[in-house]
């Protein structure tokens, strides 16, 4: 028997073993179909789209100049297009913020056991299966000039003439809340359930009131989850399209970016401008997402006590 302290000089491992040590083995072949789909249907079209943006149509070049960058010039110079950035943000940011902030107290309350919780939870999840188009149709009927809401308000004498709840900014906002809130609620609930309840009880034994418990214990632990939820809800609201068209004012105050992209794509058949708007949309979203996630890592470093 040899003494320890000197390793046998020759490594007897085969190449297969040495690769396996770094995590490379035949199991990775399982990734191939997924990668093929991602590359063929996502990476390739995406790069193709980037290429398209610098091949503007002749009409575009003539109108806006800038040569190969004519589409970008048009995007920033044409107020009809560029204003859509602001119009989109004006809808998506407050909607996402409201959905996240409103979810917190609701999730806090629904966290505890009570009768009818299942029913209430399923009611909240229902809009996810309804989809934006049906929600839009329902809103038009329910909240329209002659809908039940206005009818009730008139009967009660609360208003003199019907409120304008649809075909404007408010209509889209309502639709974004109805479809986005349940999503935010589900997420926040799952983050909340990842926080060990004994932490709060510990705080209670240390003399913390309910606000102090929320402010000092729950909120800091929930913060990363809030940021993630905000990002995902924002992504949903940001790409709003059907509702902006159906319950909004498509050429006016809800002329969002995705509508502009669709207009260029479907109505003007200018694929290069459509790609440009689509990519700028991705860029704007990315800026917000990075900002929020940056803020999150700035504010909080640590674990939630649950997963996430």
């Amino acid at each position: 028997m040899s003494a320890v302290g000197q390793r046998p000089g020759r490594a007897t491992a085969s190449l297969r073993h040495r690769l396996a040590e770094r995590g490379i083995d035949p199991t990775l072949l399982l990734l191939v179909p997924g990668l093929v789909v991602a590359v063929a249907l996502f990476v390739y079209p995406f790069s193709y789209g980037i290429g398209l943006t610098v091949q503007p149509t002749a009409a575009m070049q003539e109108q806006w100049g800038g040569g190969a960058l004519a589409n970008y010039v048009a995007f920033f110079r044409d107020p009809f297009v560029f204003d859509s950035v602001w119009l989109t943000m004006r809808l998506a940011l407050p909607a996402a913020l409201f959905n996240v902030l409103a979810s917190v107290p609701v999730a806090m309350v629904l966290r505890h056991r009570f009768r009818g919780k299942r029913l209430l939870t399923s009611l909240l999840v229902l809009p996810i299966t309804l989809g934006t188009v049906l929600t839009a149709q329902g809103l038009l009927i329910f909240a329209g000039r002659q809908g039940w809401i206005n009818r009730t308000l008139l009967e009660l004498g609360l208003v003199d003439e019907p409120l304008k709840l649809v075909n404007n900014y408010l209509g889209v906002m309502l639709s974004l809340i109805i479809t986005g809130f349940p999503f935010a609620f589900l997420l926040i609930s799952s983050y909340l359930s990842g926080i060990d309840p004994s932490l709060e009880q510990a705080a209670k034994t240390l003399g913390a009131g309910w606000w102090q418990r929320f402010r000092r214990i729950v909120l800091p632990l929930l913060a990363p989850g809030l940021a993630t939820t905000f990002v995902l809800t924002f992504v949903l609201a940001f790409s709003v399209f059907p509702s902006a068209r159906l319950v909004g004012d498509a050429m006016g105050e809800t002329r969002v970016m995705s509508l502009m992209a669709f207009r260029a794509f479907g109505e003007q058949n200018d694929y290069t401008m459509a790609s440009t708007i689509a990519l700028m949309m991705g860029a704007v979203e990315l800026i917000v997402v990075v900002a929020v996630l940056g803020l999150r890592s700035l504010l909080y470093r640590g674990t939630t006590g649950g997963k996430g």
Partner: peptide
């Protein structure tokens, strides 16, 4: 956003 990659796709 689906539109971002949807249009090039």
């Amino acid at each position: 956003p689906p539109v971002t990659y949807g249009i090039p796709l």
